[in-house]
């Protein structure tokens, strides 16, 4: 039925030549283009991410002088020292408390606001704008606003308790309250962004699901737990990991509000890294702490990637 073409030697030779040439054309071009397109980013990341990573890892296995020069190789001794230091374990502990509280509060509050603001009511746009407003507030501004709220003599909370004849709370001098103050400020700062993302996600849940539930007479709380929550769970997961990672990296608010105090109650990881290196000049210790922070962040980022991998194909 079909003509079976005779593959002569000449033909097969010709085709192999042309095949090679074609491959050459494609790759030769792309090679130089890719150097141009990828080169700058690769170079920058190499210099400011990969080199520092290895340098930090390297320093963490030495003792250092006050100029940051490595002196004696100690292997993992720095790590052992850290883990057996009550001071460091305290830092790790307060960081964990902080991360946990910030994440739980940010997500629940964000969810509450987003669910409320997703209702189709007249004027709801105003509330959406108001709730997302903290997104425009930078670290220093947030710190200043809240420092005034917490101020023991002239602060807003102090005034309110005075007016109500209550004993004023020592926000920034009591260890437990200082932690609470930092948590409140962080959550407040996170809220705008979290709210916006969750709202977007809730709005993308198909209306028909709610209509179907409505027809079957499901209450609005039931609708929230049985429809909204499961439908937005990928976003919820995404926002949670971002919040966790950001909380582990907190520095600005702590420096501005408590400076790690009182009595180390808010002396969290990054603040420690900074203090140990740039105040005490203990670069080896600081690098060791930095590697521990890296491991923690990498762990949570990896979880996020694993999850995203299921959702998106990259």
């Amino acid at each position: 039925m079909l003509k079976t073409p005779a593959t002569s030697e000449v033909a097969s030779e010709k085709k192999s030549v042309s095949k090679k040439k074609f491959v050459f054309r494609l790759n030769a071009n792309d090679k130089y283009f890719s150097m141009f397109f990828l080169g700058p980013s690769l170079l920058l990341l190499g210099l400011f991410v990969f080199y520092p990573l290895f340098k930090t890892l390297y320093i963490s296995m030495f003792l250092t002088d006050t100029f940051g020069n490595t002196t004696v190789f100690t292997g993992l001794q720095n790590y052992v020292n850290l883990i057996s230091s009550a001071d460091f374990m305290n830092s790790l502990f307060v960081t964990l408390i902080y991360v946990l509280a910030v994440t739980v509060l940010t997500i629940t509050m964000g969810l509450l606001l987003a669910n409320l603001a997703s209702k189709k009511l007249p004027g709801i746009g105003i509330f959406r704008t108001l709730y997302s407003m903290t997104m425009g507030v930078s670290v220093a501004v947030a710190a200043i606003f809240w420092l005034f709220m917490f101020n023991p003599s002239t602060g807003f909370f102090a005034l309110v308790s005075n007016a109500l004849k209550l004993t004023p709370i020592n926000w920034l001098t009591d260890p437990k309250n200082a932690m609470l103050a930092v948590i409140i400020t962080t959550v407040w700062m996170n809220l705008g962004f979290t709210f916006l993302i969750l709202l977007g996600s809730i709005e993308s849940v198909p209306r028909s699901l709610y209509e179907a539930a409505e027809v079957e007479g499901a209450s609005s709380s039931r609708q929230f737990f049985k429809i909204t929550l499961p439908m937005i769970s990928p976003t919820l997961f995404f926002v949670s990991t971002i919040t966790i990672i950001d909380a582990f990296k907190s520095f600005g608010l702590i420096d501005l509000i408590t400076k790690g105090g009182p009595t180390n109650a808010t002396n969290m990881l990054v603040y420690r890294i900074y203090k140990d290196a740039f105040y005490s000049g203990n670069y080896a210790k600081s690098s060791t702490e930095a590697i521990i922070l890296t491991v923690i962040i990498a762990f949570f980022t990896l979880i996020q990637f694993k999850f995203l991998e299921k959702k998106v194909n990259y």
Partner: peptide, 9 residues
Amino acid sequence: GLTEISDGT
């Protein structure tokens, strides 16, 4: 010319 030819002309 958007896809390479494996064989033939």
